[in-house]
Structures are given as C-alpha cells and as structure tokens.
C-alpha cells in the first residue's frame, strides 16, 4: 500500500491541488468551468491513451464514443427519466458495442489507414445524429432543469434528485463528482497499464510481429483496448452533456472534438498515464489565461498565441510536457537517474 502511494505521489499531489484550488484561490465560476472541462477532456484523453498511447493504434475518431455517451444519457434522462448514472453505463455499453462491431475486422489496417477509418466512423456518426429527428436532428437536445423534468416534487426532494441526475445547479458538487470519476478512470488506466493486458498492449505497440510470435493475438487485444476506451470515452461524454446542458451533433461529434483528446494527451505525454491530465491542465489553463489577456476570442488572437506555443513545445521537447518534467527531474537527481532515461 505504502509502495503504491509512493509510486503515485505526483498523482496524490495533483489530486490535492484539484480538491483545494476550487475552494481557495480559484473560487470563480470561470475557474470552476475550466477545471470541469479539464477533468472531462482528461478523462476521455485517458481513454484515448489506452488505444493510441499504450496499444499504438492512432484514433482520430473518439468523438464517436464521446457523442454516443452524451446522446445516450441525455435521451434516457429526457425521454425516459432515467438517471445519468445509469445512462452513462448504458452509453458506455453502446459505445463499446459499436467499437466491437465496427473494429472487429478493422485492425488489419496499419497506421494511418486505421486512423482515417476511425475519422470516417466519427464523421458518419455526426451525419446520422444531425439528421435523426428522434434525437432532435439539427436542433439537438437542450436538457430540461431537473425541477421541470418531474413536476410536483418538493425542494428537498429536488436537492436529492440533483445528485441523482447530475444536475449542475451548484458547480462545486458537480466538479467534485467529475473529479471522483476522473480519479476512478485514472486508477483503472494505471492498473491496466501495469497488468498483464497492459504489457501485451505495449508489446503490440512496439512490434506487432514479435507480439504475435510470443502467442499474443494482437487483434483481440487491440479490440479489447478499443472497447474499454470507448466505454470510458462515453462516460466522459455523459459528463459533458450534463455540464453543457445542450448537445447537438456539431458539438459532440466533429473531428475538432476528436482532436482535443489527441491534443491534450500528446501535449502531456503519449502513452503516459499522467499525460492526459497534465496536457489538459496546461491546455485549458493557458486557454483561460490567453482569453483573459486578449479579452475574448473574437479576434482569434488567443488561438494564434496558443497554436504558436504548441508548435514551440513540440519543436523543443518532442516527448511533450512529461518530457520536460523528466528532464527537470534528471537535472535535480543529477547523474543518479540519468542512466534510466
């Protein structure tokens, strides 16, 4: 136990910061929003990292699962009054099932051919959901506040229902709920990384042929990674829908959303369990700072500076922010750790 705590000391420090910042130095709605976005995108980033970071199969289409999660829980809540806690699991199962069916025969594709296939799947989802009248077609679905959803319930009952329905009346409880879910996802991903499955995944990433020759069936393990990844991404989608309170196909399914998951993870450190959260923190804190400095994003100046920063980071440290962190660690520890890197 102590060993594990020691190993994940940085994670505990991060967790402490996430618990304390919202109630100390960051007590504004603005900061709370940013933290919630960080947690949601980092959650899906962790999911993306399983298939693309650990298993080495680049996906440009995780918005497909993200969107399915968002739509499933929303439809269940709005049309059938089923709590998103169940909705997110149903969404996860549907997303995983979709991944299973679509990618069952797709892992024979190598490299970019696979990446483009994932992009196509997400684009197909976007088209279907933007024309499907049952889910609001082009208008999307706006989530009704919980009081309006079930008429005639008392105030105290609403408070309970709010928890049950993940309704964001008060941002802080929602933030901590999202944080708890992220911690769970982080633990699952860290456990998977160090499990037998995780080693198989990495073996496949390093060499398909070698993995095969020692008796691993790459297709099955890639499929497993994709399905787990889809499940987690869908849960992230549910949290997004509950937070954003409005979804349509253009908000949850486009390529730009898929790219956010890629971006935060690669920025933080690909194939590193800390990558997505570090990347998301940096991405969205910078985003917030830029917006404050340049006063809104109307001119696009914030995006210009931001894009330039991404280019700068990639040009100076190809391993992402975690690469920079490792470099600093090496310097601090002197030559003791130098050999390992």
């Amino acid at each position: 136990m102590v060993e594990i705590l020691k190993k994940y000391r940085p994670a505990l420090v991060l967790l402490l910061l996430f618990i304390l910042i919202p109630i100390t130095i960051g007590r504004t709605t603005d900061v709370h929003n940013v933290i919630i976005y960080i947690l949601i995108y980092a959650m899906v980033g962790e999911a993306w990292n399983l298939i693309s970071g650990f298993t080495g199969q680049t996906s440009f289409g995780h918005a497909a699962y993200f969107g399915i999660g968002a739509y499933t829980s929303t439809v269940l809540l709005e049309y059938y009054h089923i709590t998103p806690w169940i909705g997110m699991l149903v969404g996860g199962v549907i997303a995983a099932a979709l991944a299973f069916v679509v990618y069952f025969n797709m892992f024979k594709l190598k490299g970019h051919y696979f990446a483009i296939a994932t992009l196509c799947v997400a684009e197909i989802m976007k088209t279907i959901f933007s024309k499907w009248t049952w889910v609001g077609a082009g208008d999307g679905i706006a989530l009704t506040p919980i009081t309006g959803l079930i008429p005639g319930v008392g105030k105290s009952a609403v408070a309970k229902l709010a928890w049950l329905s993940l309704d964001v009346r008060n941002r802080l409880p929602f933030l901590y709920t999202t944080l708890a879910m992220f911690v769970l996802v982080f633990i699952i991903c860290a456990a998977l990384e160090n499990s037998r499955i995780g080693f198989y995944w990495k073996a496949i990433r390093e060499s398909h042929e070698v993995a095969e020759s020692i008796g691993i069936n790459p297709r099955n393990y890639k499929l497993l990674a994709m399905c787990i990844s889809a499940f987690i991404a869908a849960i992230g989608g549910t949290f997004f829908a509950q937070f954003f309170k409005y979804i349509d196909a253009i908000t949850v399914f486009p390529m730009s959303v898929s790219m956010i998951f890629v971006l935060v993870t690669v920025l933080g450190g690909l194939g590193n369990v800390y990558g997505p959260i570090i990347g998301a923190v940096i991405y969205y804190s910078l985003d917030l700072i830029m917006r404050r400095l340049t006063g809104g994003s109307g001119s696009g100046l914030d995006q210009i500076v931001f894009g330039a920063l991404i280019v700068l980071v990639t040009c100076t440290e190809p391993r992402g922010i975690m690469g920079i962190v490792e470099r600093i660690q090496e310097k601090l520890h002197g030559k003791k750790k130098g050999g390992e890197a």
Binding site: V262, L263, Q303, I304, G307, A308, V311, T314
Partner: peptide, 20 residues
C-alpha cells in the same frame, strides 16, 4: 520525433494559420 509529435506541431500550425 517519436509518435504523434509531428502531428501536434502541424495542428498547432493550423491553429495559427487559421486564426491569423
């Protein structure tokens, strides 16, 4: 560079060029 670093660089570049 390893992995998707080059992709990230071109993505940053696209943000710069588009928003310019």
């Amino acid at each position: 560079a390893q992995g998707l670093t080059a992709l990230l660089a071109t993505f940053g570049l696209s943000m710069v060029l588009k928003n310019l």
